[in-house]
């Protein structure tokens, strides 16, 4: 029993040493990789009008066009809304 116990202790110490060694090698490898290939922020996209705002405005134009067309008894193709301004 004592021999088995000592063998188990030896195996444990050896195995933990191997695990730490392998993982320390990995740590340095990762650090080297991160140093060699640094993170580059993606280039900022060209400013354009906000898509959500634009689509929201399109929705408003479509709704107003449909309402006006119905009110005037015309087809929506017969006129075009060119500007909406808030008072």
């Amino acid at each position: 029993m004592e021999a088995s116990f000592l063998a188990a202790v030896n195996v444990s110490i050896l195995a933990l040493a191997v695990i730490f060694t392998v993982l320390i090698i990995l740590i340095f490898t990762i650090k080297l990789l991160v140093k060699l290939i640094p993170y580059k922020a993606p280039p900022p996209k060209a400013r354009q009008s906000s898509p959500s705002a634009s689509s929201s405005q399109d929705d408003h134009v479509a709704a107003i066009t449909a309402t006006l067309a119905m009110h005037m008894g015309k087809s929506p193709d017969e006129f075009r809304i060119v500007n909406i301004s808030q008072s």
């Binding site: 088995s4 444990s12 933990l16 730490f20 993982l23 990995l26």
Partner: peptide
């Protein structure tokens, strides 16, 4: 944060303490 690999290694101590405990309870290696 690659140094956290050491925490993954340290937690393996449970494996080896249990190995010693299992040997004391009569299991082979």
């Amino acid at each position: 944060n690659p140094t956290t690999l050491l925490l993954g290694a340290a937690a393996q101590i449970g494996v080896y303490i249990t190995l010693i405990g299992a040997v004391l309870l009569g299991f082979n290696m």
